[in-house]
């Protein structure tokens, strides 16, 4: 049995802080981009145009079915060979994870949009709204309310997925944890701290989403 001893963290807390910053930065950018990609692809999936539907379906089926790790490797190792452009690990990871999660978000948006009754579309159109304004003012607000639990789930997944970027030497929590563990010879404490911080971030995220859900539920 090994003894727990966190005292080295007092000396080297900045390693963990760097990791925390790296995780938060990657998670924030990935979430922002994939939520946007998701809504575009989700609208494509529900579009009346067969071309748009097919394009969105291709996107979803392609990126949803390739493991995130493979996509990260692909964008980091293959993309530069094809284009001659060497991206830094942050850009590669953010691109890969955004495409990957965007495909999952697209499905959440699709089911949310489809859960809104056709009669709401009729009402919006009858007032003179076109497709986009009906979507924006009539369909999306109640649809997003229904989507929040699923969106939260997927967002938690995105935050956890950022650890995959450690494999391409992006300095996020797991990578920094490994660094600590190897330089201080304390794997037990190093990885436990990484896990504890991730739990902390994600509990805050779920708390925020529950509050949002409750606030939105007050209308209606």
């Amino acid at each position: 049995m090994s003894e727990w001893d966190f005292s080295f963290l007092l000396r080297r807390y900045h390693v963990i802080l760097d990791g925390l910053y790296g995780t938060l930065a990657l998670a924030a950018v990935t979430l922002a981009v994939s939520l946007l990609l998701g809504i575009i692809a989700g609208m494509g999936r529900t579009s009346r145009s067969a071309t748009l539907r097919a394009a969105a379906t291709c996107y979803v089926e392609f990126f949803r079915n390739i493991p995130a790790l493979v996509q990260v490797f692909w964008f980091f190792y293959v993309f530069p060979i094809l284009t001659g452009i060497q991206e830094n690990p942050f850009i590669s990871a953010a691109t890969a994870l955004s495409f990957y999660s965007g495909a999952f978000f697209a499905e959440i948006y699709r089911s949310g949009i489809q859960s809104i009754e056709r009669s709401q579309w009729d009402a919006g159109k009858a007032l003179g709204f076109g497709y986009f304004r009906t979507m924006r003012y009539v369909v999306l607000p109640p649809a997003i309310k229904r989507m929040i639990p699923a969106l939260t789930n997927q967002s938690i997944e995105v935050v956890k997925l950022t650890t995959v970027a450690s494999t391409i030497a992006y300095h996020e929590l797991l990578y920094q944890g490994q660094l600590l563990s190897q330089t201080e010879f304390r794997p037990l404490e190093s990885y436990t701290v990484v896990a504890a911080i991730l739990i902390g971030i994600l509990v805050l995220l779920s708390y925020g989403s529950t509050r949002l859900e409750r606030r939105l539920a007050r209308s209606e």
Binding site: S119, Q120, D122, A126, L127, G128, R133, P141, S219, E220
Partner: peptide, 30 residues
């Protein structure tokens, strides 16, 4: 459609808006 008012069997009010907001939205946005 903006010039032709329609009233539906199932009312089709927007559930996420108050009565007043339901009436306000089209004049504002259109």
């Amino acid at each position: 459609r903006a010039k032709v008012g329609m009233v539906f069997q199932q009312f089709n009010l927007f559930p996420h808006m108050t009565a007043e907001q339901n009436v306000m939205i089209a004049p504002m946005k259109i």
